[in-house]
Design a protein around this nucleic acid. Sequence first.
DNA 1: TAGATTGTTAATCGATTAACAATC
DNA 2: TAGATTGTTAATCGATTAACAATC
Lengths: 213, 213
Amino acid sequence: MEEKEISQAVIGRLPRYFRYLGELKDQGVERISSQELSRIMHVTASQIRQDFNNFGGFGQQGYGYNVEYLYTEIGKILGMHKKHNLVIVGAGHLGQALANYMNFERRGFLIKGLFDQDTSLTGMLVRGIPVRPMEELENFILENEIDIGVLTIPKEGAIPVSKRLVKCGVKAIWNFAHVDLDVPEGVQVENVHLSDSLMKLSYNITRFEKEQR
Amino acid sequence: MEEKEISQAVIGRLPRYFRYLGELKDQGVERISSQELSRIMHVTASQIRQDFNNFGGFGQQGYGYNVEYLYTEIGKILGMHKKHNLVIVGAGHLGQALANYMNFERRGFLIKGLFDQDTSLTGMLVRGIPVRPMEELENFILENEIDIGVLTIPKEGAIPVSKRLVKCGVKAIWNFAHVDLDVPEGVQVENVHLSDSLMKLSYNITRFEKEQR
DNA sequence: TAGATTGTTAATCGATTAACAATC
DNA sequence: TAGATTGTTAATCGATTAACAATC
């Protein structure tokens, strides 16, 4: 059974489908056609059908898609039925903000540990999780079956820490540091470069003002 | 003089060029060829030349690109020479983390105000900026020439607040709330959906594990 | 059965890569 | 001038949209 490669363009749209289907489900909507979903989400019906069909036939001709079923299936594709154990490296403002964000826990992303180079923070509790010193990182990862490392440290420290994470076998890094990581094949990296996002915003503001003239 | 539309794919790459060129500049590198940059950034030289040529000829045949000049020009394209005034709506952990992040200020994104529905936070200082009650939002935006509204509130409140921001004439919204905003043409929106980003990570972990089997 | 809507193939569009003439 | 490398055109590739036969 050949597994075809799904493009990252499609993957990138799945969380949004998942969100809309969750909302429809909560509203008690039972079934939906690609056309109706198209109208709500402002994407073409054709794209919706193509996207879903990458994973097999979720719908039924003449009927549409069962909202609850589709929601569950997309959740499975995204791995939402699994639990992931996280450590956050960098207990500054951003690291603390992420540690405090309950919604990740609801989705199965469990924050198990918080680490910081600054030993004056050691022992501080963030939502009940104590900050630990960097020396304990390796042991903690191994003992707690950590999947995902979150980097919320300045760019200078990010590369060496990413190497330590990889060496302990984490499967993925969620990188908020403003630097590109170089990890071995098979270690997943998802970058959240906030300043890049602001720069795009800045560009688009200027572009629109130019268009008006 | 016809301004050609630049694709968002290109725009999305500009901040990364800007970052690498800044680093090269700091290292004292004077000139660089598309081929060399290609090797460093892991993109094709052809793409680099195509991207830059969207904005006119920055290079010189037989020589390459002057790093400092190219850095400055891309900065201008991104609007990095301009200042933007921001308000953050939602003074929770994430809002505070963003308010504390100095690097945005360095890039000309000046955080002028912080707002929160919870009046028990009113007056609290975050990096010297007092938290204000929501009633003051409109006047504050008008008086301080606010460009950009940042939404760091739960999704329930995001849409009404976005409408208030738009009504006061903000040019752009940086949206951290997990909901799609519906704004008039010309108002720029940049979404940072952190949980979507985590879901992609989760998908890619599972995908890789499947491939191995 | 008739109507609706999927699943899927074909057509189009846009983005990336390759090639090379222009030129420093 | 010869060598290097851009700017730009052409070729390729992939993603999106359109169309429609299959089927519930």
